[in-house]
């Protein structure tokens, strides 16, 4: 077996040390090494967004990044979105607007949408559709997802 590399990063607010092979993607590390299986694999080549996480505040696809590249980075996965006692407004809006069916795309959408609304809480439909174009959903037709993000934006604007 290939040699493993020691990597230190901060995941969901906690300093985390892990060992991984250089060829392992960040997605593999999150899922298989750290058991953070909320990030999903839909394509493993950057085209579905199900593996979206934030790295130093920007959304990225964890299947297109090596685990070793997480060295010194701050990463937030879907598991880090809610607080102990409440859901994030985006999560709440997804529930209320029935913005998920099978739910496999949901973690990626929520991480992406949260990041958008943190930058632009007043993002309109067009902007939301553009921002989320890297996240594929096959179940919902996007309608209820877009509505949920609009609603979450409203909630976040009110603070």
């Amino acid at each position: 077996m290939a040699d493993k590399i020691h990597v230190q990063s901060n995941i969901n607010g906690y300093d985390v040390d892990f060992l991984c092979e250089s060829r392992q993607s960040l997605l593999e590390v999150l899922r298989d090494v750290l058991n953070l299986t909320g990030s999903k694999e839909g394509c493993n080549d950057g085209n579905c967004g199900a593996c979206t996480v934030t790295m130093d505040g920007r959304i990225v696809e964890s299947c297109c990044i090596l685990g070793v590249e997480a060295e010194g980075k701050e990463i937030i996965t879907i598991e880090g979105v809610a607080s102990a006692d409440s859901l994030h407004p985006v999560q709440q809006a997804f529930l209320e607007e029935a913005a998920l069916q099978c739910g496999i795309c949901t973690p990626g959408f929520i991480v992406s949408a949260k990041n958008l609304l943190e930058r632009e809480p007043d993002a309109d439909e067009e902007r939301i559709r553009f921002w989320l174009a890297g996240n594929l959903c096959r179940c919902t037709g996007y309608d209820k997802i877009v509505r949920a993000v609009l609603k979450a934006g409203e909630v976040m604007r009110k603070g």
């Binding site: 990225v60 696809e61 990044i65 992406s112 890297g134």
Partner: peptide, 9 residues
């Protein structure tokens, strides 16, 4: 190029 995620890298 790609979506927002790809553009971040």
């Amino acid at each position: 190029v790609g979506g927002i995620q790809v553009q971040g890298r």
